[in-house]
């Protein structure tokens, strides 16, 4: 097998992985701190993509204003997250987990249809920003600069996130909250603000990844469900609520998906499911997660 083929599979897997990491880290963060599994996280991602497309149309359809459009979209989703948390989700914290789960599922249904209503069911696409339109030739494989950018951005955000969580006061509170909620109360921290903050950061990350994916993939209804299932597999592999688990879970997912094609041609997703099944059986709480019973 040609080295160039293997390398391009590797690069493809890594790009997928870094996108997934951006998305799954938000999902994992909200779970770790708030013990809420946010099914609507994929919907935030999809809306981020639609908003980015919309913003590009407003600013300039030729693509030179892609970056401000992407930022605008991510901020828009962050605001949406704040509204959802403050107005609705907040009232369900005291209730059983089932109700929070179904609440986020209701958002999937409502927002998904709203997007269909506004933007229709056709495919929308955004051209690559001119700065990154070129490609690089590495080991005989063609690597678009944009993919390279994503591969660098992913680890940077991972590192930044890790620094915030481990070196800042806010990060300490967040980690304390993910260990023990009572401890947080004891610290006298304002739990409500922390929860809103986490939800907003997580929505921002989802919106940003949605915006950033538009130059590589077209925007269509149903991309929300597709991505949430994948992000979900990532956090299950890595361990719900574990930061590095999410990172390595994404990397493993991306590579298994890329090279799984060699084992199950036509259905590489199967190799990912097989991997997930094995991990669930050996370590039901994920590779980096903590066992909780």
């Amino acid at each position: 097998m040609a080295a160039s083929f293997l390398f391009s599979q590797f690069v493809g897997g890594l790009t997928t992985a870094m996108f997934l990491f951006l998305i799954a880290s938000g999902l994992s963060l909200v779970f770790g701190v708030m013990r809420v599994v946010n099914f609507a996280h994929g919907t935030f991602y999809m809306l981020g993509a639609y908003l980015a497309w919309q913003a590009v149309q407003w600013l300039s359809p030729t693509g030179e204003n892609f970056w401000p459009a992407a930022l605008l979209a991510a901020l828009g989703i962050a605001v949406l997250g704040a509204v959802v948390e403050r107005l609705l989700l907040r009232h369900l914290y005291g209730r059983e987990e089932l109700y929070q789960l179904l609440f986020t599922y209701a958002l999937v249904l409502i927002l998904g249809d709203a997007a269909k209503f506004i933007w229709g069911t056709g495919q929308l696409s955004v051209t690559r920003p001119p700065v990154l339109a070129a490609s690089l030739h590495l080991f005989g494989a063609e690597v678009p600069l944009y993919n390279l950018f994503i591969m660098i951005l992913g680890p940077l955000i991972a590192l930044g996130g890790w620094l915030v969580l481990n070196r800042s006061g806010a990060g300490r509170l967040v980690r304390a909250a993910s260990y023990d909620r009572e401890m947080l109360d004891a610290l006298g921290a304002n739990v409500g603000t922390i929860y809103t903050g986490m939800f907003v950061v997580s929505a921002f990350l989802a919106g940003l990844s949605g915006a950033l994916v538009t130059p590589i993939e077209s925007v269509v209804p149903g991309m929300d469900v597709e991505i949430i299932v994948q992000a979900f597999i990532v956090v299950v592999i890595g361990g719900l609520g574990s930061f590095w688990g999410t990172f390595w879970g994404s990397v493993i997912y991306g590579q298994v998906l890329s090279f799984g094609i060699l084992i199950f041609p036509g259905f590489s997703l199967f190799s990912v499911f097989a991997l997930m099944a094995v991990i669930l059986i050996i370590r039901p709480w994920g590779l980096f997660g903590r066992p909780i019973r």
């Binding site: 599994v37 987990e97 597999i233 499911f273 997930m276 669930l280 039901p284 709480w285």
Partner: peptide, 24 residues
């Protein structure tokens, strides 16, 4: 495998297995 976990983890694991069945 599912009953080894509690509450939310149980819910997530049942969902994960269902998605595996779906994929098959």
């Amino acid at each position: 495998f599912c009953v080894r976990l509690s509450a939310l983890y149980f819910a997530m694991l049942t969902l994960a297995f269902a998605q595996i069945v779906w994929a098959i």
